[in-house]
């Protein structure tokens, strides 16, 4: 399944609808428990692209396919600078309240929750692929 989405947070409801349809289509071969991981990872990566890749109006492509008992998801952004989410700095989740600031947790959570993540950058296209499959 693949769809393109405009660069707007209001598209999140349509992305959730896509994910819901994908899991419904594969209810016999994909564990429903992966839904939470996919929802969170897709939102965080999409929001990151919308927030930081502001020099383009190109839609963002999202693709989902079964992967053994789980899911493989790709997000492709066009006409953008290179940004590999695997290279983000550390997040101190043990810091006390007065040292914590809002922000910076999104990609950290993605890396924490998915099983693997892959990055490709070619011809100003940025493609992030993750797999949620703990079998």
């Amino acid at each position: 399944m693949k769809k393109k989405f405009k660069r707007d947070f209001s598209e999140l409801r349509n992305i959730v609808a896509m994910t819901e349809q994908f899991f419904a289509d594969h209810e016999n071969d994909i564990e429903p428990g992966y839904r939470n991981v996919v929802d969170l990872a897709v939102e965080e990566l999409f929001v990151n692209m919308v927030t930081y890749n502001t020099e383009t109006n190109e839609d963002i492509l999202i693709e989902m396919s079964p992967h053994e008992h789980g899911v493989e998801v790709s997000l492709t952004d066009y006409d953008v600078e290179r940004f590999d989410p695997r290279e983000i700095g550390p997040v101190d989740v043990d810091a006390p309240l007065d040292e914590r600031t809002p922000g910076g947790l999104g990609l950290y959570l993605v890396l924490k929750m998915v099983d693997s993540i892959h990055y490709e950058y070619r011809n100003r296209q940025s493609k992030i692929t993750f797999i949620a499959d703990r079998k």
Binding site: N36, D39, L40, V47, L97, P102, G103, L105, G106
Partner: peptide
Amino acid sequence: EYISSAGLGVLLRTHK
């Protein structure tokens, strides 16, 4: 049903 880092940021900001 669901919370993302944006929601966590709202809770943290209010809590602080």
